[in-house]
């Protein structure tokens, strides 16, 4: 009754607002280490709409154009209008039309976001490479491309947060998706019988579109479930004729014979050497393999290998004849 858990004590302390800080001692509080603001400085790059986080610096539209033309225009277009990548300029007032364009000028509510993003993520292939003055300059130039600041504008940490973006009031938090407890905006009912009176297909993929864009879409399904595909290619036929090392593996030869090392039986390279000068080597080896035997290399017994096909045997013998190469 009187022995409160640490959790309960914390709840009571919080409820009374006697101690604003959480974080009672926990056994794992020794993990990690304290870090100072100076140490974090190079990582602490986020910028807020009120300008908190902006470093000291300044840049002009004219300076920005030079950097932009060299480092940005290739993707975003000379006038920030390339449709290939995210368009930077234009589209102001288009958001409520049937062809909305989402650009810096039309969509952003705060110019600080542009600074934050260029600073952390651009240029695409060399992010975090621009100095603060360069970022201010590029931001000034892109805002100028949108007609938001004049051609002689100079932006710094004081003036940037004061730039009024055209879409400043374009966002709403009046929806139910901010929280797990929010109220949905679209409602359906779980009707079970005689629900839709008339069912008509309103949209479908145009003929040939799938083939043109995706090729044979059936190749994206598990092949053995497509029964009219006929026989699946076997791995060996799919990859051409099997090589001798593959055949040795498939027939379990490697259990007793290494390529260049004997295991139970001799190494293939040793067999190759021994039979190099033997006149009827092929016949002798075929007999050994097919019928088995012992004595040539010691007392270990070679079991008969009747399962090997004639084709496979010929491939293996040729390989032995050519010195049992590793490739």
């Amino acid at each position: 009754m009187y022995a409160m858990s640490r959790f309960n004590r914390r709840v009571i302390l919080l409820a009374g607002l006697l101690v604003p800080w959480t974080g009672q001692a926990a056994p794992w509080n020794t993990l990690g280490r304290a870090i100072t603001a100076d140490e974090i400085a190079d990582w602490n790059i986020d910028v807020r709409p009120d300008g908190v986080g902006l470093p000291k610096g300044r840049g002009s539209v004219a300076e920005g154009q030079i950097i932009y033309d060299a480092q940005c225009a290739a993707c975003h277009g000379t006038f920030g209008d390339s449709p290939q990548f995210v368009a930077l300029a234009g589209g102001i007032g288009s958001l409520k039309t049937s062809t909305p364009q989402r650009t810096v000028g039309s969509k952003l509510n705060y110019a600080t976001t542009l600074w934050d993003y260029i600073n952390r993520a651009m240029p695409f292939n060399n992010s975090k490479s621009l100095a603060p003055n360069e970022v201010y300059a590029v931001v000034a130039y892109v805002l100028n491309l949108n007609g938001i600041v004049s051609a002689d504008a100079v932006l710094d940490e004081i003036s940037l947060p004061q730039v009024k973006m055209p879409n400043r009031d374009g966002f709403t938090l009046a929806h139910g998706m901010r929280s797990v407890h929010g109220k949905p905006d679209v409602h359906n009912v779980a009707c079970m019988r005689n629900c839709a009176q008339e069912v008509k297909i309103s949209a479908e993929i145009p003929p040939d579109f799938t083939q043109q864009m995706y090729g044979d879409i059936r190749a994206q399904f598990r092949q053995f479930t497509l029964q009219d595909q006929g026989a699946a290619p076997s791995p060996s036929t799919a990859a051409g004729a099997a090589s001798a090392p593959e055949l040795l593996k498939a027939n379990g030869c490697g259990v007793c014979h290494g390529r260049d090392q004997g295991i139970v039986g001799p190494a293939f390279t040793d067999i190759s050497k021994r039979y190099a000068a033997v006149a009827d080597a092929s016949a002798k080896l075929t007999a050994k393999i097919r019928e088995g035997g012992s004595g040539v290399w010691g007392t270990a017994i070679m079991p008969p290998q009747s399962q090997i096909s004639d084709v496979a045997l010929a491939t293996i013998l040729n390989w032995i004849k050519s010195g049992a190469p590793s490739e």
């Binding site: 909305p100 969509k107 976001t113 938090l173 929806h175």
Partner: peptide
């Protein structure tokens, strides 16, 4: 802001959806 916000027919965008 530019992305991951839901544009409504009236031109407003739902943010933090």
């Amino acid at each position: 802001t530019i992305h991951y916000t839901d544009l409504m027919p009236d031109g407003s965008s739902r943010q933090y959806t």
